[in-house]
Design a protein around this nucleic acid. Sequence first.
DNA 1: AGAAATGATGGAAGCGCTTACATTTTTGAG
DNA 2: CTCAAAAATGTAAGCGCTTCCATCATTTCT
Lengths: 323, 323
Amino acid sequence: MNIYDIAQAAGVSTATVSRVLSGSDKVSPQTREKVQSIIDKNGFVPNAFAQGLGLGSIKLIGLLCTDVSDAFFAKAVSSIEQQLRQYDLAAVLCCTGEELSGKKQSLELLLSKKVDAIILIGSPMGAGNENSHLVEAAKQCPLIGLNLHLDIPGFYGVLSDQEQAMRENVAHLQKAGCNKIAYFYDGDSPANQAKLVGYRKAAKDFDERLLVQTKKDLDAAMEAADSLFDDCPFDGILASEDILAIGAYKAMAARGLSLPTIGFNNSVVARCATPSLTSMENMLDSLCTIAVTQLVDVLNGKNVPRKISIACHLVERETFRLT
Amino acid sequence: MNIYDIAQAAGVSTATVSRVLSGSDKVSPQTREKVQSIIDKNGFVPNAFAQGLGLGSIKLIGLLCTDVSDAFFAKAVSSIEQQLRQYDLAAVLCCTGEELSGKKQSLELLLSKKVDAIILIGSPMGAGNENSHLVEAAKQCPLIGLNLHLDIPGFYGVLSDQEQAMRENVAHLQKAGCNKIAYFYDGDSPANQAKLVGYRKAAKDFDERLLVQTKKDLDAAMEAADSLFDDCPFDGILASEDILAIGAYKAMAARGLSLPTIGFNNSVVARCATPSLTSMENMLDSLCTIAVTQLVDVLNGKNVPRKISIACHLVERETFRLT
DNA sequence: AGAAATGATGGAAGCGCTTACATTTTTGAG
DNA sequence: CTCAAAAATGTAAGCGCTTCCATCATTTCT
């Protein structure tokens, strides 16, 4: 069944049916009602491809995500998808992995599906922040970065202020008397870089050995903390991710130490851990809501800010309390 | 730029270009090479909508997922998406939520995007296993259920044998001397029902009070365990989900008890917990790989089994050891 | 009342690709 | 060489919808 059949049955032209379908145009109420009733009666759904051909869009939004099995990204994807649906947009998900080749391939795939826009979750860049593929992509459709911003045309960033958040973390621990704060981080995505910068700025003079890069993995963090402690004892723990903070804390706990520890992202594991982990809430939900709003506005041709940044706040639990 | 431009530049007809694009058909090697070089030179990518109109497919697979922010589902989605990409298929993700209306709406959305098939992750059914919408959908495109099977045409199930797994869990705890095993479970999706049946069959005579339904949430599980213990003390813990097992264990630990506990799904939190949680590995990766293989075979018109089931196995950690 | 503006509807040309069928070229057996 | 069969290529008719432009029916204004 196609639009022509409906037109026949309603005794109108395909143009009129199309107008009824698109909702907006000028159709007399009677005609609209008659056509609509026939559409309903037959359960007619317009062919998405034909519509796409005519309109140039099939209402798909690409989600380029480093790894959805990561709890943080998964939450973001979930939240974004829900938002999108409210605008009758569907999400095409691509998990890129860490390799640049995978990132490029995924991007190509999304573009080939003619998505209307792409939301970037995690780091879509290659080593050394190689981003020529993003520049190219941005010419084809708007790019919305989550906790990420590039100063190129067609790019819109929505970020939580992680640098500032990490500064606060450092300040908190310092107030609690820590002056050798270990910082565990994974990878060097732009988001992680911001946190690291925050640490550097706030900690000022510190032993470079206190900065430890490790895999985003409990065991890796435990080992890293263990060997760091032998090499350069520390009195407080910060991390770019809750899981790393938990690992480090566990390793110290095994030595009978209970060091002030603050994680980052306030993820599920923070509450599951024993003792429960104090963590920096990144306002992911707000981030996602705003990202989708931005996206919709851009698609509607509105003039929107190129970069929006929102503040984080601390959620206190057992591993560290402010007062 | 379209296929016509390429045809012109190559001095051939659009049909020939199309043949080169589709790869398969008979084109002389010289012609193919000439056309291909021009395609490459211009970075030409065929219009997905037009292709869709002609072919009736745009190589999209729907993923109907109850909630990607759930770690288990997220892993499944991630794994499936990766597999799909190897077949040059893209994944359209829809998170349905728990409401039947949301499930129906998501299904409609996927169908309206003309996906070639839909993979169901979590429970797509309504209360009382209402599934008429699925029956309808199965008429339009194949449905692949992950840990789910319906005996309707067009439905293919790939499941881990959760009933059997839960029987083993019960048997293990019984061997360890437990004879009042509490079972915590969330929701009554078909997958959860299978586990529950496993418990019932293996536990045989047991106090019905030992079955506790609760939210999939740490605190909820703790409270539930706490009040159950007051009402009907138990000596072992099983659950449909790791997080519930952890909650229950925590609550008992707070009372100074360390009960044999086995979780389900072997998720990340199982390792993060202290003490680490023994859990039933559900072979999710295999499940996903097989699901995608099934899907591809179905799309290629192969004759595939309607239901495939694979065994789980226990991963021992601190909360319970077999020996 | 007649002209002009306004509103509703229809006709038909795309959108860019696929593919059945027609046509031309090549191949090789006799 | 000749000619039929096979291979390569071209022609053109869709696929189902959108939308510009034309047409016809109402109003509104003078």
